[in-house]
């Protein structure tokens, strides 16, 4: 699927997903070792996006299982389709009567019906939920278990069984083994600590906020129509915002939204008015907005200071060191 870490980085970039080497290494290993990946990190840094992109890059079907409190096997694995079974019994009533014709005892009649059991407990009446879909699919797939931290610990234990062997036992049918092992991504916002058993079976990837250079590159790819200067200002401002002690620090998705919002407003540069009007795009709490507003002049001033310094030494391009920093990160 992938030959080397660089290839991974390249093919993800082809799908407009810019990432550092750390992420690429883990994806490469996941594909090679056929191990699930547990992706952690703050909201909005692209955990789900990573899974989607890998699916696209490898041409695999994406099967997504969104976790929530109370998610159970019936919703995640499979469920018998009761109503269909009922309907069939209604329609086939006469056949059953025919079947039982000539049965001398009740025991005999029950035996005859019992022999036809398998008709009703077959693939025909099973509703495959995401986990079973991923296992029975003919083509290799990518299974995304989103926000696994939201699920209950019992579900986690059950997930373990599936992840370690990629096989599922349906009592009425038997054990179903995956035709080809799906790539599995689990994402978590750390609402609760996942169990050690689960962690042990997974490769672990922690995605943090990107470095400035990386974020600039992401913006350039995702919002190509924005001017370079605007992108740089925007990213710089974002990084200063993340330094503040905010309830919810803005992440990449917010940066992207902001850039798009600014474009929609035809703003060519960041100034106090524009920022004030659009704060609600990046900050989601009243308190955060107020805090940022009070620091706004400082946030912007710094930017102007930097701009002045850059104007003085225009020849400096930090891109070489930048890339290296990104890799370290």
């Amino acid at each position: 699927m992938f030959d080397s870490v660089e290839k991974v980085q390249q093919s993800l970039a082809d799908q407009d997903f810019i990432c550092d080497k750390k992420i690429a290494t883990v994806v490469f290993l996941a594909a090679k070792l056929e191990k699930p990946v547990l992706v952690e990190g703050p909201a909005g840094v692209g955990k789900t996006e990573l899974a989607k992109t890998v699916a696209a890059a490898t041409g695999r079907n994406l099967i997504r299982l969104q976790c929530y409190e109370g998610l159970d096997e019936a919703k995640a694995l499979y469920e018998w389709e009761y109503s269909k079974q009922l309907l069939y019994t209604q329609i086939l009533k006469e056949k059953f009567t025919g079947l039982m014709d000539g049965a001398s005892t009740i025991r005999e009649a029950a035996r005859r019906i019992g022999e036809e059991d398998s008709v009703f407990f077959s693939d025909n009446f099973i509703v495959a939920r995401p986990l079973l879909q991923a296992i029975t699919a003919d083509e290799p797939t990518l299974l995304l278990v989103d926000e696994v931290d939201k699920s209950d610990p019992e579900f986690e234990a059950f997930l373990l069984e599936v992840l370690s062997d990629f096989q599922v036992t349906v009592p009425e049918i038997g054990t179903i083994v995956a035709k080809s092992r799906p790539l599995v991504f689990l994402t978590s916002n750390n609402a609760r600590e996942m169990s050690d058993a689960l962690k042990r079976r997974c490769l672990h990837l922690y995605i943090d906020y990107p470095t400035e250079e990386l974020e600039v590159r992401i913006l350039e790819t995702k919002v190509p129509e924005a001017a370079k200067q605007l992108i740089e200002d925007l990213v710089g401002m974002m990084h200063r915002l993340r330094q503040l002690d905010l309830k919810k620090a803005p992440s990449i998705s917010e940066t992207l939204d902001w850039a798009r919002a600014l474009l929609a407003l035809n703003a060519s540069e960041l100034n106090e008015d524009v920022v004030n009007q659009t704060f609600s795009v990046i900050l989601k709490y009243e308190g955060d907005v107020r805090k940022a507003e009070s620091e706004l002049s400082k946030l912007l001033q710094k930017k102007q200071g930097e701009a002045a310094a850059q104007a003085a030494t225009p020849s400096q391009t930090p891109s070489a060191t930048a890339v290296k920093k990104g890799a370290l990160h």
């Binding site: 290494t25 290993l29 962690k199 672990h204």
Partner: peptide, 24 residues
């Protein structure tokens, strides 16, 4: 993991060890 990776890139080596052994 190290079987399928080359050793020449120090960062890759470091990330590979981390992703397999350090989960918190």
């Amino acid at each position: 993991a190290l079987e399928v990776l080359s050793f020449d890139d120090r960062e890759v080596f470091k990330d590979a060890l981390r992703t397999t052994m350090v989960k918190r």
